[in-house]
């Protein structure tokens, strides 16, 4: 099938098998590998992207579902690591292995779009679907608070 959608602000057209998922299309067909495969079942959040601004687990999203819609991945969050969350992530030295962090940042970005100054409780509730095995949670909270302040 041929699917056209907006990816990080640009219109793309991709040829893919009918069972193609958004995750593997992003990663293998479009070579945007910042979005990660962690569980394949929307349990870990490593594959979080924005679909029309809504944080969405790409691993369970069929490619056909994004036709004519808008997808933003970690690569599209900023051109130059300048998103307040990316800056805060460096400032707070959040990542360890780093594998989950695209998902963490994309989930957090959606939070800050809707909630200018989230409380700690709001942050925790919103971020609970994204697992970090290295245990960077306390720094994630700190970085989101820092980014919210900067915005």
């Amino acid at each position: 099938m041929k699917i056209t959608f907006k990816l990080n602000g640009k219109t793309v057209q991709v040829e893919a098998p009918s069972d193609a998922s958004l995750l593997w299309t992003l990663r293998e067909r479009l070579e945007l590998t910042g979005t990660k495969f962690g569980c394949g079942a929307a349990l870990c959040g490593a594959c979080t992207v924005h679909l029309d601004g809504i944080p969405t687990r790409a691993c369970i999203t069929p490619l056909s579902m994004v036709s004519r819609r808008s997808v933003t991945t970690i690569e599209g969050l900023s051109e130059d690591q300048s998103h307040p969350l990316q800056k805060a992530w460096v400032e707070a030295q959040v990542p360890q292995c780093g594998y989950c962090q695209s998902g963490q940042i994309m989930q957090a970005a959606a939070l800050l779009e809707n909630t200018k100054n989230p409380s700690r409780e709001q942050i925790v509730a919103y971020m609970n679907g994204v697992i970090c095995r290295c245990g960077t949670y306390t720094r994630i909270i700190k970085a989101i608070e820092m980014a919210a302040k900067e915005r």
């Binding site: 979005t35 990542p95 940042i105």
Partner: peptide, 13 residues
């Protein structure tokens, strides 16, 4: 760390 905030850090995957 910077490469782990924009998706450019390369894992074998």
């Amino acid at each position: 760390i910077p490469a782990k905030t924009d998706g450019s850090a390369q894992f074998a995957m």
